[in-house]
Amino acid sequence: MAIPLQLRTLIDRLNQELAQSEQEASEGLNRVRELLPQFPENAQMTQFFAYFSTVLAFVGNSKRRIQVVLQKLATDEASAEEIQEAGEDLSTLLGQVLETKIEVRKIITRLRS
């Protein structure tokens, strides 16, 4: 069974959001790296550094998850139920990515101030 257009659209959106999240988390990590030597005892800077590093790991894991889903669905043996389950899982992942993206932007805004 071919991957439905709605699922392809969801995957494209996920990949776009993940790319943006990766770019923003990298920017945040670079900003923290610049500020950390000035404030070596600042626990919040250390937390931001750890958070941005975790976000980058999350992005990598999410990309691998998408690839696994695509490989699983690329076979002609994928059932309608498996496709629906994949759509639900990827929709949940999109929600997590969007929440993460919002948090990353909040922290970057604080760092810019």
Score class of each variant (00 low, 15 high):
residue 112 R to I: 05
residue 23 Q to P: 03
residue 45 M to F: 15
residue 60 G to F: 03
residue 50 A to M: 11
residue 98 L to K: 08
residue 66 I to N: 04
residue 44 Q to H: 08
residue 52 F to C: 00
residue 70 L to G: 00
residue 76 D to V: 08
residue 65 R to P: 00
residue 70 L to R: 13
residue 111 L to H: 02
residue 27 E to C: 05
residue 48 F to A: 06
residue 24 E to S: 10
residue 25 A to R: 00
residue 89 D to C: 04
residue 102 I to M: 12
residue 71 Q to D: 14
residue 23 Q to T: 12
residue 45 M to W: 07
residue 44 Q to M: 11
residue 53 S to H: 10
residue 32 V to K: 04
residue 99 E to D: 14
residue 94 L to N: 03
residue 21 S to Q: 13
residue 77 E to P: 02
residue 43 A to V: 10
residue 51 Y to I: 03
residue 96 Q to E: 15
residue 11 I to S: 00
residue 1 M to I: 04
residue 5 L to S: 11
residue 25 A to W: 04
residue 55 V to L: 03
residue 18 L to W: 03
residue 3 I to M: 11
residue 8 R to S: 08
residue 3 I to G: 05
residue 62 S to T: 07
residue 63 K to V: 02
residue 44 Q to A: 07
residue 27 E to K: 14
residue 46 T to F: 01
residue 59 V to T: 01
residue 81 E to Y: 10
residue 95 G to R: 08
residue 13 R to S: 09
residue 73 L to F: 04
residue 31 R to V: 10
residue 26 S to T: 15
residue 28 G to R: 03
residue 104 V to C: 04
residue 89 D to A: 14
residue 103 E to C: 02
residue 47 Q to E: 14
residue 16 Q to W: 06
residue 72 K to W: 01
residue 84 Q to N: 12
residue 89 D to V: 09
residue 12 D to F: 08
residue 47 Q to I: 06
residue 43 A to G: 06
residue 34 E to R: 14
residue 35 L to N: 09
residue 72 K to N: 11
residue 96 Q to L: 13
residue 93 L to Q: 04
residue 19 A to W: 07
residue 8 R to T: 13
residue 60 G to N: 14
residue 65 R to F: 07
residue 74 A to L: 07
residue 73 L to E: 00
residue 101 K to E: 07
residue 4 P to D: 05
